[in-house]
Simulated scan of single mutants.
Amino acid sequence: MQPSFTSPRQVKIGDAAAFAGTTPRAIRHYHEIGLLPEPERGADGRRRYGHDDMIRLLWIRRMADAGIRLDDMRAAFDEDQDIEQGLEGLDRALAAREAEIARQRATVQRLRAVGSPLGLLSDLVVGLLGTLPPGALRRSDLEALLVTERVLGPLGAAVQATSFVVLATHPGLRAEEERLDAAEAALDDGVDPDDPVVEEIARRRCAHLQAIDRIARATGLDEQVDALFDTYEDPDEGEEREMSAFEAFTKMPYDFSPARTRCLQRSGELLGQSLADR
C-alpha cells in the first residue's frame, strides 16, 4: 500500500522562509513595511501562511534577486497603479543604482591604481596628485582635501590640490609650510589675539600662499584647474545638497584658540587684498 501525502493548508513562518529562500526575520520586516500582508494566526498565536501568502512571498524574493528595492516593489503589487507607470519608476530606480555602482567601481579602480587613500577622493583631485611620488603627500594634506571636498566639492578640492603639488615639488616651500604650521599651532598656548606675533604670522602665511600661487601660475597648474571648471559636470548638480558650505564648515570641530582663529582670519584678509590689487 502506497503512503498518501497531503500538503498542509497553512505553514509556520519558519517553513515559509525555508521554502522561499529567505529568513523569518526578513518576512517579519516585509510585514512591518506593508509589503506582505499579515496572515492569519493559529490557536497558538503564531502566524500561519497560506497559498496566496507564499505566492506573494516568492514574487518578493524574485524581485529582490533582480535588484529591485523593497520600496519599489509596492508598485508591482498596486493594482490601482498603471503598470507602465510602475515599470518606468522601477526602471529609473535601477538605472540610478547602476550609475551608483559604476561610480563605486570607478572609485575602486582609482584605489587600485593609486594604492593609497588618495584614491577615495574625486577623480579631479587624483588626476592632479596621482602622479606624485609615494610619500610626497602628508597625511594632513589628504585630511585637508577630504574636508574641502565635503565643504566645497571636487572643484574646490582641485584648487587646493595645486598647492600640495607645489609643496611636494619645492622642498623650501614645504619647509616653510611646516614652520608656519608649528607657529600657528603655538598660538593655541594662551597667546592673546592682539599680540603682534599674530599679525606677524598672518603676514608670513599670506606671503607663503602668494609664493605658492606664483609657482602654480608659472607651471600652468592654474590653467589646468581653469580647464576643469570649464568641463567638469557635477553629478549632484540640480540636487539639493544636505547642507551649505558654511553650515558644513561650522559643523567641523576645530579646537582653535581665539589667537589662532584671528591669525587665520587675518591671513585670509591679507590674501584677499593682494588678489584684489593684482
Score class of each variant (00 low, 15 high):
M1V: 13
Q2L: 13
Q2R: 14
S4L: 15
R9A: 14
K12Y: 10
D15G: 02
A16R: 06
A18G: 01
F19M: 12
A20S: 12
A20T: 09
T22K: 03
T22M: 09
R28K: 10
H29R: 06
E32D: 15
G34M: 11
G34V: 04
P39V: 10
P39A: 05
R41W: 02
R46W: 12
R46T: 10
R48F: 00
R56D: 00
R61T: 07
A64L: 12
A64D: 03
A66D: 06
A66G: 07
A66Q: 05
R69Q: 14
D72A: 14
D72Q: 14
M73Q: 13
A75W: 01
A75G: 08
A76G: 14
E79S: 14
D80V: 03
D82R: 04
I83A: 15
L87M: 14
E88H: 13
A93G: 12
A99P: 02
E100T: 13
Q104D: 08
R105K: 11
T107V: 14
V108M: 09
Q109E: 15
Q109K: 10
R110W: 11
R112E: 13
S116F: 07
P117V: 06
P117E: 14
S122R: 00
L124D: 02
L128Q: 10
G130S: 03
L132G: 02
G135V: 08
G135T: 00
L137D: 03
L137H: 07
R139C: 12
D141N: 11
L152M: 13
P154I: 01
A157V: 08
L167F: 06
P171Q: 09
L173A: 04
R179W: 07
D181F: 11
D181N: 11
A182N: 03
D188K: 06
D189Y: 04
V197N: 03
V197A: 12
V197Y: 06
V198P: 04
V198E: 02
E199W: 02
E200K: 10
I201G: 05
I201S: 04
A202K: 02
R203S: 14
R204P: 05
R204G: 14
H208P: 07
L209M: 15
L209N: 11
Q210P: 01
I215C: 00
I215W: 08
A218P: 03
T219F: 04
G220Y: 12
D222Y: 10
E223G: 00
V225W: 04
V225T: 11
A227N: 07
A227T: 06
D234V: 09
P235H: 07
P235K: 03
E239C: 06
E239P: 02
M243D: 14
K251Q: 15
P258N: 03
R260P: 07
R260A: 11
T261F: 05
S267L: 00
S267E: 06
G268A: 12
L271D: 05
G272D: 10
G272R: 11
Q273G: 03
Q273N: 04
S274G: 11
A276V: 09
R278H: 05
